[in-house]
């Protein structure tokens, strides 16, 4: 059962990722990314991290993707130019990516992670649920938590400065 769920979600995640790269229209790319994010949430649930899965669905597939859809609808699809400034880019890029994947695989396989071949230890019932993560966040990781909230605020202000309209009489 777990294997079926894993391979289903893995195929969904990989298919969504390939869809993001392969689709001509950015709107379809965004939709493919939503499929990818939901599949990843299933994988997170399989890894007994309920809170991360919920945050993935609510924050990513909910909020961030709505922002993407709005911007794509505002800016418009727009075809990409067929002009290729770097000769052979279409062939070189997959070759380099294959090299990257082989390198990552070698790094994983030859690492001395003893537990790699195993299932991981048995975990208690509350592992990864909102209460446990919240306690960890507000006790052990309070300063990173606050720092990330300040970072979010800065990003929001920065986006308003970047994309907002200039007021009347203000130099551009």
């Amino acid at each position: 059962m777990e294997a079926v769920l894993f391979f289903g979600a893995a195929i969904g995640a990989l298919g969504g990722a390939i869809g993001v790269v392969a689709m001509r229209n950015p709107f379809y790319s965004v939709l493919a990314l939503i499929v990818h994010l939901f599949s990843l949430a299933v994988l997170f649930l399989l890894l007994t991290s309920a809170f991360v899965a919920a945050a993935q669905v609510v924050v990513y597939a909910g909020a961030v993707m709505v922002l993407y859809v709005f911007v794509v609808a505002y800016v418009g699809g727009g075809g990409e130019s067929a002009w290729e400034p770097i000769p052979g880019q279409r062939f070189l890029a997959p070759a380099l990516a294959l090299a990257l994947f082989i390198e990552l695989s070698i790094a994983v396989l030859s690492s001395a992670l003893l537990a790699l071949g195993t299932h991981g230890p048995d975990v208690p019932a509350g592992f990864g649920d909102p209460a446990a993560i919240g306690r960890l966040m507000l006790e052990k990781f309070l300063i990173p938590f606050e720092a990330s909230s300040i970072l979010l605020l800065l990003a929001a202000v920065g986006a308003i400065v970047l994309a907002g309209r200039k007021r009347e009489g203000e130099a551009a």
Binding site: V59, L67, V71, V75, A159, I160, L162
Partner: peptide, 17 residues
């Protein structure tokens, strides 16, 4: 995830600009 959200917000702001 928070970092990704920040990056998206700033990047989309740049695209709109």
């Amino acid at each position: 995830m928070v970092i990704a959200a920040c990056e998206v917000v700033v990047g989309l702001g740049l695209i709109v600009a």
